[in-house]
Design a protein around this nucleic acid. Structure first.
Lengths: 244, 244
DNA sequence: CGCCGGTTTGACATACTTCAAGAGAAGTGG
DNA sequence: CCACTTCTCTTGAAGTATGTCAAACCGGCG
């Protein structure tokens, strides 16, 4: 689906209506949001925000995939999160952003002016509660990713990454076949998400292909041929299944 | 300061009154909290909660240091956070906890029964707002730690860890000298926080001692003799100072 | 066609882990 | 107060997963 820069679709038809910050809003609250929102689009590869930027807008991802990351002074990069449709960008109550936000694919945002949005958060419990819920979910996800970064092997990282992709892709597009995976990221971007180098990512994907776990139809597209093997490779449970 | 299990000090004299989840509460709200709170103490090393445990209480750390971590099925451990006085344990709106919580030193908690606390969150914006603020701060901290886990060298990890300790220790005890550091964790615990092995931690601390950056008075206690060198060692800015 | 970004593959380097032994502290019980 | 055990920590030697460097490949596009 493509949404132009100018069009500002009504919230009631919004594809992320039921999962974004506005999920719990009633009609009146949506009307307020409608007044302070605007759509913005970015081409794949374009920066959306740099660390330290003034946050004049907060935003929800409507479509596409973005990344959240940090660059060290000597150039090392660590991605700290992927942003899928319905994910939120920016901290209400904070004037600046602490991370770089980049459009990985073409991205469309639903932007809210910061000040009026913060007033809304302060005055309507619905938005504040939803925001808290989302923040706590992200916190759990971030901590799980810390386990991956700190303790998992390259192979486990790749397998976990693929499982995560499947989960999120089927969440934002329930029509997609579960086992057909399209990588939205380059090898280098995957590497910076997993705390690896692009060469290691390439080798591990190659190995899983050779072992018949993944069937590539394209360098960016594959099918999971052996889901159990993939899951075992994540290291998430030693015996390959929930302990009933 | 020691607070016994039975005593339930008034909120007005609470040492974490102005930083904890109750920071923004007025008298009436404190009165409600007073009714649903109870103190609990744990000895160093005792588990406070295991992953998957029913969350009948939510809590604030009053004194001591706790850890938040995850254990993989094969025994690998990754600590995902340290809990200092005023830090909060548990997600309102979630019946179970996703991580293991352990008392690193002797710990005293101020526990709130979950159900009434959640009602309070739903009804009073003060608590909800403070909770959101704290969650967002923790989210930023978790993401910064992801950079450490994914990209930093062993030496940079140790240096960053020490700087973080100094910051948090002086925050929760402003009387403490900034450069006197007491390690609340064993080498093994430090390792599991930094995604390293205890041997590597020991060697890196040894190296910094030999280089004169740290002066140990005890295996768990040292002074930072060369703060600049420590900061440069973190890798956080290549030239050793903010780029003003 | 020839360039170009993304990717693969190989050979080599190394930071960190693993395995192993021993030295200090700290607690316990006689 | 002294053996005795038990942790915690240090130090060394050897192994390995992953990083680094470099070359070649591939598909797309002007």
């Amino acid at each position: 689906m493509y949404i132009s820069d100018r069009v500002r679709p009504s919230c009631t038809e919004c594809p992320i209506r039921h999962r974004a910050v506005c999920a719990r809003c009633d009609e009146d609250e949506l009307a307020i949001l409608d007044n302070i929102k605007s759509y913005k689009s970015f081409k794949a590869g374009e920066p959306i925000l740099w660390r330290g930027d003034e946050l004049t807008y907060l935003a929800s991802i409507v479509s596409g995939v973005g990344s959240l990351g940090k660059t060290m002074e000597d150039g090392r990069i660590q991605m700290v999160g992927l942003l899928f449709p319905s994910d939120f960008i920016g901290h209400p109550g904070r004037a600046q952003i602490e991370f770089d936000v980049v459009a990985v694919t073409d991205v469309t945002l639903c932007c809210f002016k910061r000040k009026p949005f913060e007033d809304l958060v302060a005055s309507t419990p619905h938005v504040a509660q939803r925001l808290l819920e989302m923040a706590l979910d992200e916190l759990d996800a971030a901590r799980d990713w810390m386990v991956l970064l700190g303790r998992k092997t390259a192979r486990e990282k790749i397998a976990t990454f693929i499982e995560m992709l499947i989960r999120r892709q089927s969440l934002s597009d329930p029509s997609s076949e579960a086992l057909k995976v399209v990588l939205p990221l380059t090898r280098e971007e995957i590497a910076s998400f997993l705390g690896l180098t692009l060469e290691t990512v390439s080798r591990q994907l190659g190995a899983m292909k050779k072992e018949g776990i993944l069937h590539f139809s394209d360098r960016r597209q594959f099918e999971v041929a052996d889901f159990d093997a993939l899951h075992i490779a994540t290291g998430d449970d030693a015996d390959g299944g929930p302990l009933f």
